[in-house]
Write a protein that binds this DNA or RNA. Structure first.
Lengths: 225, 225
DNA sequence: TAATTTTATGTTAAAATATTGAAAGTTTTT
DNA sequence: AAAAACTTTCAATATTTTAACATAAAATTA
């Protein structure tokens, strides 16, 4: 995933150009469609579209209709562009899973801010990266890098490391770990944590000793200075 | 400061309960208000509220207004709850110093993660440290530092020191110490305390003599001026 | 000052807890 | 359906902590 592609659908080419310029300036890739059909075609051709910006008012197939069709096949985030004063059907939008509305005319700042916020929210942007002692943890991608090199972790291992790093410097009892990384209603042996810690430590290599044992209590993730 | 208090403001009691449950499960204290006025009252009454979670859409005084008023008097972190699809005024929020947005419906994980992240960012978490005569005791991290340098203590040693420092200046009988640091149903020799005191004193180095012997009675932790 | 009581300390045995490797049980993928 | 990947359990081993004891040292009292 290199740059994020956004599909802009509007029948007015001036409006498309405006939106495109703002988005491109902010580092996104932009595809354009001037009506619903074209939009659907483009969406099917390009499997890696990260967001749609749909004008509500379009000839033939309007924004709602495009939205409906897209939702048949995808949960991609959708922003609706509404004309000022145009009645906004919040309920319909809610049902269709519209993520945001932006009223025309809008400021570039608003547009870019919303797009960024949604992508961050839906974890398409790497906003939620955590770092500690050279260990980079990308929640969205469920990916861990040590000094730039990717490390393969299983689901539980990842969750555990995530919990550790989120609570770095804090002594965590086994019970607490169990309640957060496992489900609240987990009844298994707390010793399973030890096994996961073992695997984590070995996969983290040298940095494995950031996971400190607190005797009679639990573990603590700490990067010594 | 023991547990962090969070004020949740929403007109729907179901939503308040939901948020409260998640937060309480994660160890926070929660106060609730069902409208802006109540929120302001509670905020003034309780001087130690660490965070506000505000629903945007409320009758009479909406979230933005509450936010504005709070900001007149405090820089406490604020999270805004927005309904999905609801137009989100990022610019206004930015001006008002909103820290985060969470869209309903949200997952407990998201809620708790954001709250934790903000509190960590604002250094409200991890603040509980006890200090006495250059000995810094961090309960959360289960860590002791003397003049800035970490000292390795075993579990019991840590507990004992914690008890001493918490009751600094107070003469503690062996029985009392046994009852607090050991379990109430401990039947061993009270002389075992002596052994632990010995080790503590030696690990504390010079500051070991802050632990005074009270002949025929027990011990007392005291920092002479 | 000597006798008595209490505490300090070093050593050591016992207890508690953690680590590890292997195997059994699950879930997911092919 | 088989294979692979992952999670959990288990048991043996290693490690750390705790408690006990014996003796030395200190404080108290007669």
């Amino acid at each position: 995933m290199d740059i994020l592609k956004i599909l802009v659908v509007d029948d007015e080419s001036r409006m498309r150009k405006l939106v495109r310029d703002f988005l491109v300036k902010d580092g996104y890739g932009v595809l354009e469609a001037e009506d619903g059909e074209q939009a659907m075609d483009l969406f099917y051709e390009n499997k890696d579209i990260s967001m749609l910006i749909l004008d509500v008012m379009m000839p033939r197939m309007d924004g709602w209709q495009v939205c409906r069709e897209i939702r048949q096949v995808s949960q991609v985030p959708i922003i609706m562009l509404t004309a000022k004063g145009e009645e906004r059907d919040e309920l319909l939008g809610f049902e269709l899973g519209v993520d945001e509305y932006i009223s025309k005319p809008f400021s570039p700042k608003i547009l870019v801010a919303r797009v960024g916020a949604i992508l961050r929210r839906t974890n398409l942007i790497n906003g939620e990266q955590k770092e500690a002692g050279g260990i980079l943890l990308n929640e969205a991608a469920h990916e861990v890098k040590i000094d730039g090199k990717p490390v393969e972790l299983s689901y539980k291992e990842f969750e555990l490391l995530d919990y550790f790093i989120t609570n770095r410097g804090v002594a965590l009892s086994r019970e607490k770990i169990l309640n957060h990384v496992w489900d609240y209603d987990y009844f298994g042996d707390a010793r399973t944590i030890d096994t996961h810690v073992k695997k984590l430590r070995s996969k983290l290599g040298k940095k494995g000793n950031y996971i400190k044992t607190i005797w009679g209590m639990g573990y603590k993730f700490e990067v010594e200075e």
